[in-house]
Simulated scan of single mutants.
Amino acid sequence: MKTLFLLFTLFATLFGDKILTLATYNVENLFDLEKNGTEYEEYIPNSTSNWNQRNYKIKLENISHVIKEMDADIIALQEIENLQALMDLRFALKQKGLYYQYYSIADKKNTTVKVALLSKIPFLYSKELSVTLTNEHRNILEAKFKIENQELYIFVNHWKAKSGPESKRVVSAKALKKRVEEIGYDKNIILLGDFNSDYEEHIKFARNRKHNDTNGITGINHILGTINQQENSSKISSAKESFYNLWYDTDEENRYTHIYKDKKEALDNILISQPLLQNRDFSYIKNSITNFNRNYLLSKKGVNRWEISQGSIKKHKGEGYSDHLPIIAKFNIR
């Protein structure tokens, strides 16, 4: 599978096609050092938790190292506190020789963490898609690109956590679907980020009464139409109103970005509209989806997350990266 992808990349390069690398990464609570009153308790700057200049610098160094190694053209980010934190990450990347000239963050709502976007490619616009009027749900970030005369819409998501029921995530899915319908399913559309949903959530949550308060309906599978997908993008035959989850295009053992109690989970996803599967002027490169599971991002406990002691007073240890692994996928633009 990997050999075929390398051969395709060489072929595309020789014949002048452009390879677009796309990534998504939940960086796990990137907070700056300004106190604004919405921080989690352990991220109050310069408090007993040791969220200070030293640990913030280590966090930026570690996360920027991962992003630098991926070197994506466009990367979606989740759990960024605010614009300042995004700019500090962008500067850390620039110091490493990776410059993202274009950036955006969904910061109109005063939520604790937000979604953002870094890009080497200019976008025609970026704007926020409001899920609800309250701060209960984070806004979705929408950006439109025009690359080699091809239009591309990207939506960065961070849905409600699994500490809450599926109905919370359905709200985000419905808002997203409504916007997609306005744009049109015949467009090149990518939905990505932390959906807090498995690619087969409708199967895995069915017996969990805590989650299943929707009579079996899930946001990612039913509302966005990823249910009953075939295991290979070259064989897929779905309604044009459905999205294809790229996890089906890699080996099942590699379909994870999070490990909870020794159980691998695919909380992060990349979904693409049907035109991106049809091998046209802008198309997904088969077998290119992968989680970025470098050895330094894994530990005996699972994913090598940012370490905070769990005593009566939580303290930052200045070690680790994030509790999520990034995902990368590649697209061909003729």
Rank of each mutant, 00 (worst) to 15 (best):
H65C: 09
S234E: 10
P165E: 07
E265Q: 13
A85N: 05
Y248N: 08
D251P: 00
K35E: 13
F195P: 04
I44Y: 04
F331Y: 05
T134K: 04
L246I: 00
F282C: 08
L89Q: 02
K235S: 08
L98N: 14
T290D: 09
I270S: 04
P326C: 08
K300H: 10
L14T: 13
T214Q: 07
I75T: 00
T111Y: 09
I147P: 00
T48D: 15
M87D: 13
I327F: 11
R209D: 11
K68E: 06
N291A: 05
L4P: 00
L14F: 14
N254C: 02
Y56P: 07
D213K: 00
A239I: 05
L89M: 03
Y256C: 10
F205Q: 14
L117E: 01
S64T: 03
I75M: 02
A266Y: 13
S273I: 15
D194M: 09
T132A: 06
I67V: 11
T111C: 10
L192R: 06
D32A: 06
K109T: 00
N254K: 14
F145R: 03
W306F: 12
K94E: 13
H65A: 14
S130V: 07
L7S: 10
F282L: 10
T250P: 06
S172N: 14
I203G: 02
A72R: 01
S288P: 03
N293Y: 07
S172W: 01
H137Q: 07
L22F: 15
S273A: 15
N221P: 01
E319D: 12
Q310G: 06
R179V: 11
Y100A: 09
G164H: 06
D213G: 01
D88T: 02
S234C: 03
T214Y: 09
S47P: 07
